[in-house]
Amino acid sequence: MKTQRKSIFWILILAALILGCITFTPLVIPYGKHEPALFHFPYTLWTGLIVTLLFVLVTWIATCIHPGKGEDES
């Protein structure tokens, strides 16, 4: 069980790294472009918002399956 959790945690670390890398590509920050907008938010703002939300989501999953979960409960 713990090994399985460890593997999933490593996958989540990889996901966080990939998210970090994607942020600095034209997919999220195209130079001088603010279209298409989403809910009137300019492009970089809404893509950035999604990336941030994904980071929080990855963190939340990580807290649920962390191999050390429950180790230092007191």
């Binding site: 670390i13 920050i29 603010h34 950035g48 941030t52 980071f55 929080v56 963190t59 990580a62 807290t63």
Partner: peptide, 21 residues
């Protein structure tokens, strides 16, 4: 401009993951 979101909010997103690890 809006690049400030990437500067701080996205970085803070990465930071909360590091807090766990």
């Amino acid at each position: 401009g809006v690049g400030a979101w990437i500067f701080l909010a996205v970085s803070d997103g990465g930071m909360v993951f590091l807090i766990i690890w």
